[in-house]
Design a protein around this nucleic acid. Structure first.
Lengths: 206, 206
DNA sequence: GTCAGTACCGGAACAGTGTTCCGTATACCC
DNA sequence: GGGTATACGGAACACTGTTCCGGTACTGAC
């Protein structure tokens, strides 16, 4: 194998300094705009905020979802990595619960992100794939451990659960701010229902 | 009170025959187009299918969501009405489960409908309101009955549950066709978890 | 330092939405 | 049959995402 220097900045595929500079300010601008207006913000707004042309956005990110993934890459990776840590520090079910809560806030706090994960628009195609690739294994191992410990049922597919939680994070009008958390907790209790071993504590109450 | 003839066709606010004719073909066209292309289909397509101009659509339905609600009005009303029937014919928890399944298929089989319920676009504003107005009372009574019978927990808000189930019906790529049903079942088991009375049967297994 | 080649840039242009406006047509009432 | 209010149709506007292409300026060689 050649050129396998580890941790080389994954994004850098260009040699020209201006291109790299543009890429950086694009990511920074996108992050700011996403925080303000959600991930559905107009491309023009991101471009102008970054001080670049529209085409520059498309050159670096042919699909809008790639830009989103790039902006949140670090957070997604951190979330995936936290699974091992939680598994080390907590009992299996507790680790699973904590991770699902962490995942919940990852999704729920980014306006429009949850909806984008389900958009059938080809511009968003890469986003679910990115999430699946990075987060499914993390959840899979936590789920398997909790099931092996008899704390949750063993007939639930990790990816489906991931998407289910993601869907529950889609914000809803006329509903209190804790809605995603409450629904995810309900889903978690569904996981516990009928688990082989007694579960100790009762359901989370509001 | 004047002019309170019951069951007068709620939609008829016009006196001109051509307007009524247009309204009818508009609804028929919308129904067909929604079935083919989902509820996000272009307004122009619906208009041209109905053989009317674009403005005619907007005249009758200033908000897109009003058109959607009008098209599915009958099905929504039927779903709401079925709650009483189910409550009469089945034990409380069974009635609740069956109704939630019925609601699930109502949402899940209309492409794009689930997503539209969450769109923050003002054009879809009226849709969640319509659903809430008609379906929340139905679920509320079923939920209260099942809780009173000790079969489910009593700390879950009916509207939140309604929206939660709706969110779980948002279709997801790379997942089997039974996904919404499986997730809703999981949520239902979450309702049962820690209910006062023992629940009899175990969790639904796939 | 400067020169050439090319990688990259920017914005105009295109295409597809939703939405509004206004001159025109027509159904109803007398 | 005539007059008027009502409703109609499509052009026009505003705002998206996406593509194209002439021009710019960075890099590396000398």
């Amino acid at each position: 194998m050649r050129n396998d220097v580890p941790f080389v900045k994954a994004m850098k595929k260009t040699n020209r300094a201006d291109a790299q500079r543009n890429l950086d300010s694009l990511l920074e601008a996108a992050k700011a705009v996403f925080a303000e207006s959600g991930v559905d913000a107009p491309v023009r707004e991101i471009a102008s905020r970054a001080g670049v042309g529209i085409a520059t956005v498309y050159r670096h990110f042919p699909q809008r979802s790639e830009l989103i993934a790039a902006v949140y890459r670090r957070e997604i990776d951190a979330c995936a990595a936290s699974a091992q840590e939680l598994a080390r520090e907590h009992e299996a079910f507790e680790a699973l619960t904590r991770w699902l809560h962490r995942f919940t806030s990852l999704i729920a706090t980014k306006r429009g992100l949850a909806a984008s994960l389900n958009a059938q628009d080809p511009a968003y195609q890469a986003l679910p794939a990115y999430f699946r690739q990075h987060l499914e294994p993390a959840l899979q191992s936590l789920l398997a451990a909790a099931a092996a410990a008899g704390r949750v049922r063993d007939d639930v597919d990790a990816y489906e659960l991931l998407r289910g939680v993601g869907n529950l994070c889609v914000p809803v009008a006329e509903v209190g701010p804790g809605y995603p958390r409450r629904m995810v907790d309900l889903l978690i209790d569904g996981l516990r229902y009928g688990a082989p071993a007694p579960s100790g504590s009762g359901p989370r109450r509001r």
